[in-house]
Design a protein around this nucleic acid. Structure first.
Length: 957
RNA sequence: GCUGAAGUGGUGGAAUUGGUAGACACGUUGGACUUAAAAUCCAAUGGACAUUAGUCCGUGCGGGUUCAAGUCCCGCCUUCAGUACCA
């Protein structure tokens, strides 16, 4: 046997050992992910002696593109928190699911004929695989999918509860509609103080009882918390669908560029306005960011003022206006109606008719966007009619103008040009008088809108009063005259709840003589019917109009063929579906008891988990999901169905991760590319290059780029110092910018623990920050260093030796800092802290188990796979996830001396190690006697010496 | 316009109550190891001046308070996000 052979054999053996002792993250991560799944490590129990903690992520819409590295940011943060809470001994509920109804799947179905349920299921599979490989501690046994009939059964059920409820303003809560009916039967509606449609007719008990059943249903709809109403929508005839405002660009549809018209449609609405005040008040007791609360406050838009009625001269009509400045009522010099106001056509005099009609027509043509775009152009028309001032009885000319919006308040304003800039501008433009009703204020240039410094003048009984006094007094007087009252107005509008789409929850509703009827709860869910096409029908009905089996047989209590509709026992079903926010408005309650078939969640589960302790998600949902879901929760609370009326105690918005795009520069008109440093003064066109072709030093892999697309195959590259440098720019991460980074690749190359650490290391959770894959090597080599602290070529090197003082100090300052950081959601700084700890322990050559074992628990929430692996190598047989969080002991950090910074006139010049128990006087003396101090002073005498024990010394002079 | 957040090295970012600005990383430069590369390790790295010692300047801009300001106060500028004729 030759010695060469022996050497080779030995080398082989050695390399096998090295592999086992190496940080093989792919193998380790797979191993522990399988372990967690198999052992259901993160399954939360609905019965536990431990205190509960509920950590929730906003669930994703499973799109076809899968996850990019920006998506898991919030999930990683919440996962760290959830794991931390487990270490602290909490019973943690940390679920995940899918908001799986939505447009992209439907759009795809229209294009390919593929059923949205199929594509959705495929996308979910991809999402699940991607989520699993990042190592989240989700309790998947509670997964929900909003598009699953077993889930939307309960969405339909809640809809029925809303339909069967009305809002009693006196008790300030939702009540059963049967109670309202019994009031109507006893005394009519005169004393009912309810959130209802405007202009509800008055009726007595006798009137009510004499009405037909249809008429009664119609009246009840005016009170129900979800109701049918005529709503003006943006209808696109070519697409056969209703568009949201932001889907319309320059008056045509964003998709396809088709014309869009305003059209009235009968739609389901949610009476969220009934909850406006409670939604506002509720913000006080939840720990959400100020920015988020503020945008909800703005959205609700509470304003306090008065409603005033103005008689119209020579007419029966009255104009009702809302104003926040009733105190300025003597400054009214004209009234302005929105061009769409219903009285416009009725009060316009014959002489003014042509002008007014032309104006109304002109404004109708302008889209809302156009009207908003140019607010500077003042337009309007005089109706020829006059209102009468309630106090002075003077005539007030009535104008129309598009600066008054039909949709806000009453669509009419009393114009006080001296006190409102818009009225002022309008008055100047049309030469309307501007009476001044403010004491000592010059209004020759601008209106005076400063409430706090207002003293009213030229206003009869209001003279000399300030804003508050005058407002109070004038409301009193208006009430005496019966032509006004104090009023609070909200901007918040009822929310349209119908969508002309296929891929959404069907309504549990059928129609008898045009009146909606609810299907009894025991027959739910009403499942989405099959359709041939996912487009609207030729007659313009929603996609469900294509279904042939979509009628309700009341006797059989089942969905039957449309052919059987006889309007006696078989009736047509609702063709609209629910909007995207239906399913997401209550899902956080479902997780508490996700597989319950008899209730949306059991009372026991609801009472145990109660509410979300930490909710993490994007700020883009501020005025959508986060408002609607609060509304539903309050409703469910009123009905005694949930135990709390705010469902999320604390909410954090994670920032977006942006992409770092790479650019190559093509010389105009040539197939030649100049390196970044050579483009100065050259006529070049920047082109996005895929970030995958660029290394950490911004150097382009030219071959990969050439092979990317045919047009680049023959391209010529002008290099600088032998390499081609790309330009960089931070943009939103998107496919079209070729800056998308896929977490799959990161996990493969660096591992999930590296991905998790790096996402946190990038910066504060709430901040927007750019992704740059190059930086991940930092956290990755940190993990390798961590590994080496425990394991080397010969195996585990952890010992039972007594830890050194230094190591104890390192450990305990790390415990302290990491704990503080997690509690402040400052995850980026804990990653730095871990790095410092590992660097220090490596330098200390620490092998002591007493240090290294608790260190793993600290790191486990962040990098759970490597922590589990080393934990088990240390001989533990249970998962690290339930190990108690190490106790911080301050005694290890006690110092006897301090390295004082010695500054002169505020500038630090040198440091001096001094005992911490040294007195102020001794410190001063020691510092002044020091040779370096003499050097600094150069013979000057210090005027003053500031000594802050334990902090700093500052010599002034 | 209004509301909210933010401006710190070449880059991401640290600095918890005013007390050593730039922690921790990335990148860059130099070095070690290697036949070589990768990996790893060591050193330097805000700018200017200076051989060194060191000096000056530096947290968007201009003022102020203070022994001391990234941090507090006043006035601006810029960026991002939301919202918008809300009576």
């Amino acid at each position: 046997m030759s010695s060469l052979f022996i050497n080779r054999k030995f080398a082989l053996l050695k390399s096998r050992i090295t592999i086992r002792m190496k940080y093989d993250f792919n193998q380790i991560e797979k191993k522990w992910q399988d372990y967690w799944a198999k052992n259901q490590t993160f399954k939360a129990e609905n019965n536990s002696d431990k205190p509960k903690f509920y950590v929730l992520d906003m669930f994703p819409y499973p799109s076809g593109a899968g996850l990019h590295v920006g998506h898991p940011l919030g999930y990683i943060a919440s996962d760290i928190y959830a794991r931390y809470k487990r270490h602290q001994g909490f019973n943690v509920l940390h679920p995940q699911g899918y908001d799986s109804f939505g447009l992209p799947a439907e759009q795809y179905a229209i294009q390919t004929g593929q059923h949205p349920a199929i594509t959705t299921a495929e996308n979910i599979k991809t999402y699940r695989r991607q989520l699993d490989q990042i190592g989240f501690s989700f309790d998947w046994s509670r997964e929900v999918r909003t598009s699953d009939p077993s889930y939307y059964k309960w969405t339909q059920w809640i809809f029925i509860q809303l339909f069967n409820s009305w809002y009693n303003n006196d008790s300030d809560k939702a009540e059963d509609i049967t109670e309202l009916i019994s009031i109507f039967e006893k005394e009519g509606n005169a004393n009912v103080n309810a959130a209802s449609d405007e202009n509800v007719d008055m009726f007595t008990a006798e009137d009510w009882l004499s009405l037909s059943s249809e008429k009664q249903q119609e009246i009840l709809l005016q009170y129900r918390l979800t109701y049918l109403a005529e709503t003006e929508v943006n209808w696109c005839p070519a697409l056969g669908t209703v568009l949201a405002n932001d889907e319309i660009v320059n008056g045509v549809s964003e998709r396809g560029g088709h014309p869009v018209i305003r059209k009235k449609m009968t739609q389901w609405s949610m009476r969220i306005s009934a909850y406006a005040e409670r939604l506002l008040q509720g913000l006080e007791k939840i720990d959400w960011t100020d920015a988020l609360k503020e945008s909800q406050r703005n959205w609700i838009g509470k304003s306090v003022g008065a409603q005033v009625e103005f008689r119209i001269q020579n007419s029966e009509f009255r104009i009702s206006v809302f104003t926040t400045r009733p105190d300025t009522i003597f400054g009214v010099s004209f009234m302005t109606l929105a061009p769409e106001h219903e009285l416009v056509s009725q009060i316009t005099t014959p002489e003014q008719q042509a002008e007014v009609e032309a104006y109304v027509e002109a404004t109708a043509k302008r889209s809302e966007r156009d009207r908003m775009a140019d607010v500077k152009t003042i337009t309007g028309a005089f109706t020829g009619a006059y209102a009468e001032h309630p106090f002075t009885k003077e005539p007030i000319p009535i104008w129309i103008g598009d600066y008054v919006l039909a949709g806000y308040g009453t669509g009419a304003v009393m114009s006080v040009p001296c006190g409102d800039q818009r009225d002022y501008d309008f008055a100047k433009h049309f030469n309307i008088p501007i009476p001044n009703i403010f004491e000592g204020v010059d209004i020759s240039e601008v209106a005076f809108a400063d409430k706090d410094n207002t003293i009213i003048a030229n206003s009869d009984f209001l003279n000399g009063l300030n804003y508050k006094e005058a407002t109070k007094k004038v409301i009193l007087e208006l009430e005496k005259l019966g032509c006004g009252e104090g009023k609070i107005n909200y901007r918040l509008r009822d929310a349209v709840f119908s969508r002309q789409r296929y891929w959404g929850e069907p309504f549990p509703v059928y129609y008898v003589n045009g009146m909606p009827q609810m299907i009894e709860a025991e027959h739910l869910p009403i499942q989405l019917p099959e359709v041939e096409k996912y487009l609207p029908t030729e007659t313009g009905e929603p996609p469900l109009g294509n279904a042939t089996v979509w009628a309700w047989d009341r006797l059989k209590a089942e969905v039957v063929s449309n052919n059987l509709i006889d309007n006696e026992n078989v009736f047509p079903l609702e063709l609209n579906t629910m909007p995207g926010w239906a399913g997401s408005s209550w899902y956080f309650n479902r997780y508490m008891d996700a597989n319950n078939e008899n209730a949306f969640a059991s009372k026991e589960a609801l009472n145990y988990w109660k509410d979300v302790d930490l909710y993490i998600g994007g700020s883009e949902h501020a005025t959508g999901h986060l408002l609607y879901s609060r509304f539903w929760q309050k409703f469910l609370f009123d009905k005694g169905l949930v135990p709390v009326d705010e469902y999320a105690k604390k909410l954090i918005n994670q920032g977006m991760i942006l992409g770092t795009s790479a650019f190559v520069y093509r010389v105009e008109g040539e197939n030649k590319f100049l390196s970044k440093g050579l483009i100065e003064g050259k006529n070049v066109q920047p082109i996005h290059a895929d970030v995958a072709f660029v290394n950490a030093s911004d150097e382009l892999d030219i071959e990969a780029f050439k092979n990317w697309r045919e047009e680049f195959n023959e391209a010529e590259f002008v290099l600088e110092e032998g390499v081609y440098k790309v330009g960089r720019d931070v943009e939103k991460m998107s496919k079209s910018k070729y800056n998308v980074v896929n977490p799959d690749n990161i996990c493969k190359q660096y591992g999930a623990d590296s991905l998790r650490l790096y996402e946190m290391f990038l910066g504060p959770l709430e901040q927007y920050k750019p992704w740059n894959t190059a930086g991940i090597t930092g956290v990755h080599s940190f993990l390798k260093k961590l590994w080496k602290l425990y394991v080397d070529d010969s195996g585990l090197k952890v010992t039972n030796t007594e830890p050194s003082k230094d190591s104890l100090k390192t450990l305990h300052k790390t415990i302290k800092k990491v704990q503080e950081d997690i509690e402040n959601f400052s995850f980026n700084t804990s990653v730095s802290t871990f790095m410092i700890a590992v660097n220090e322990l490596t330098a200390q050559k620490c092998t002591s188990k007493a240090i290294l074992e608790p260190l793993l628990v600290l790191i486990a929430p962040y990098a759970p796979h490597i922590a589990e692996e080393l934990w088990s190598q240390l001989g533990n047989t249970e998962s690290i996830s339930t190990a108690p969080f190490p106790e911080f002991e301050a005694s290890h950090l006690v110092e006897s001396s301090k390295n004082y910074p010695i500054s002169f006139n505020g500038k630090m010049r040198f440091t001096l190690e001094l005992p911490l128990d040294m007195s102020k006087e001794d410190i001063e003396k020691t510092v002044l006697d020091h040779e370096k101090t003499q050097e600094q002073l150069q013979g000057r005498t210090p005027k003053k010496v500031i000594v802050v024990p334990g902090k700093i010394v500052n010599v002034v002079g």
